[in-house]
Structures are given as structure tokens and as C-alpha cells.
Amino acid sequence: MSARRHDGVWPWIFMTPILVPLAIFFLWPLLRTLYYSFTTWSFFGEVRWTGLDNYERLLSDPDFTLALGNTAIYTLIVMLNVPIAVYLAALMNRPGLRLRALYRALYFLPVVTMPVAVAIVWRMLYSGDFGLINAFLGLFGIQGPYWLSTPGVSLVAVAIVGIWLSLGFNIIVFSAGLNGIPPELYEAAAIDGATPWRQFRSITLPLLTPTLFFVTVLTLIGGFQVFDLIFVMLGTGPNAERSQTLVYFFYSEGFLHNDKGYATAIGIVIIALIALLTALQFRLQRRWVHYA
């Protein structure tokens, strides 16, 4: 059997149902997006080749710089997810801890809900006039801002919801990673007199690095792709434009301003940025990820 290099027709029976939709709904649209990024669309949808015009325009467009900065800030804030999730997962994984299932359910509940649905509640909680968050801050004499309509603040407000939505997922992934660490290591360390903090730094953290890497890559890619949450929390008004992220910028040029050629150029740049960041992370992982 191992002498044959190919398995004949069978692989193609398995692969065809994937390859046909993959070609029609991924590869072909990707190539067309690349092509459109070198074109300009008239109001009536006529497509004209304009070479690198869109890309040159992008470089000097302050909206692009704004979107890039906002995306970076948003992604950095959402990264706080990772240490919080590691800490909570470590607490939940303590041997003999009761109520573990309840805690998991409490933290996981936001993960199963719909962003568009929870955005409705969060918009009310954030309300500058009758929102509970400002009422709570008021108890301590703090005058809360208009969370969703103050530039700079609104991005933080949306990022907090982003953390709230994905924290439970990351806790579960880290719990699984923690379960994979042999308990003998801790027992041996305890006999040697290592403090809990020392055990965490010398055993837990190094052995958790593969999981940390997985979650960091996912969080980073997710942060760079954020759209739904911005869209449903901030709507499409002028404040949303000021807090726009890269994918929102793409959406707004392509669908609100109907400038489809320019929008596809933005899309290509986003794809390139994500590829670059992912490649960078895979390069850097050699320095800090330990595979057992």
C-alpha cells in the first residue's frame, strides 16, 4: 500500500464538494478583490482601470491612519483578555474547588449570546443620562462620561464589551491547557519549598505557552477583524466614523460611500497586515513558546 504514491480517484470524491465552493466563494472573490483594488467604480457601476491610484490615495488618507490607530488600540485593550483569563482559569482549576461548573457557566454565558442582541443592553448600560454604569460611578462621586459618543472613550467602551464576550471562551481553553500540566510537577516543587507564585512562574507559565500562543494569535486576528461589535454598538453616525476600525472603514467606503474600488484596496491592505502579523507571531514564538 505504501508503494502507491496516490490514492487514485477517492481523494477527489472527498475533495470535490469542498473545492468547488472554495473556488467559487473564496478563490475567485479573492482574485476579483485584488483586481478591483486597481480600479475605480463610477456611480453607475462602471469599472475603470486606474492602476495604483487607490493605494496612493490610501497612503495619504487621514481616515486610514485613524482606522489603523483605532484598530491597534482596540486590539491592545482586548489583549487584556489573556492575562485575566489565565488568572481566572488558574483559580478555577485549583484542585478540590467546588462550584466549578457554576463559575464556568457564569463566565461562559456571554459567549453563546448574539453580539447584536447584547449590544442593545450594553448601549443602555452605557447611557450617559440613565445608564447604570454612570449611576454606579456616581455613588463614588465620579461623573461618568457619555461612553458611546465621546471620541476616544467609545473605543474603550466597545473593547470592554469585546472582552466580556470572549473571556469565557478563553477561560475554557486555558483550563484545558492547565489540565494538561502533570500534577507531580507541583508536588515536587512544593516539597522543594517553592511558593505558589514561584510555582506559577516556573511551571504553569512555561508549560502554558503553547495555549498562550494559540489564544494570542486568535485574539490578535479577531481584534484586527472587529466589525460587528463596532457596527452594532456605535451605529453608522459621525461618532462611529471617528471610532472606526479598519474593517469598518472598508465597510463604510464600500457600502455607505459606495466607493467599491477604494474599499477593495483597503481590504487587500487589511489581508496583508493580518498575514504580516501572523507571520511575525510565528517567528517570535521560537523565543518564548516551549513545546514539551
Binding site: P11, M15, Q225, V247
Partner: peptide
């Protein structure tokens, strides 16, 4: 299974993993 162009096809799947579907909206719509 072993088949022709398996490596490149798998690379294509990995590429798809990184490209946000949102960005292909315009040609997909067409």
C-alpha cells in the same frame, strides 16, 4: 490520503483561515 497538489491545496485552506470573510463581500455579493 495522498493526492496531486495536496500541499498547495492545504496552503489555500490556511490562507482562507486568515482572510476575514467580510473583505470578500463585494465580489461574493456579485
Amino acid at each position: 490520503m495522498r493526492f496531486y497538489a495536496k500541499g498547495p491545496l492545504f496552503a489555500l485552506v490556511l490562507t482562507m483561515l486568515m482572510v476575514p470573510g467580510t473583505l470578500l463581500l463585494i465580489p461574493q455579493y456579485q
